[in-house]
């Protein structure tokens, strides 16, 4: 199963601090949540390192 970024919406404070750090421009602060474009994400993990509340995690992609 491929690994991808998962945003834990119950922890995310929607500060947007991770957005300008993303080298691939894969993160986007939408209306009520942070969105990750998994097609662009290279799993560099910079956003995971940055996030002051630990809201971004690595998770397994499950096709449903």
């Amino acid at each position: 199963m491929p690994i991808m970024l998962v945003v834990n919406e119950s922890l995310c404070l929607e500060c947007g601090g991770c957005v300008p750090l993303c080298p691939e421009d894969a993160l986007f602060l939408s209306f009520n949540c942070l969105e990750c474009n998994t097609d662009l994400c290279t799993l560099c993990r910079i956003c995971i390192q940055f996030c002051p509340v630990g809201a971004i995690e690595e998770g397994e992609y499950v096709d449903v």
Binding site: L13, C15, G16, G17, C18, P20, L21, F50, P52, V53
Partner: peptide, 8 residues
């Protein structure tokens, strides 16, 4: 209340 951010 909690808030977060980054200072570029």
């Amino acid at each position: 209340h909690k808030t977060a951010g980054l200072t570029p």
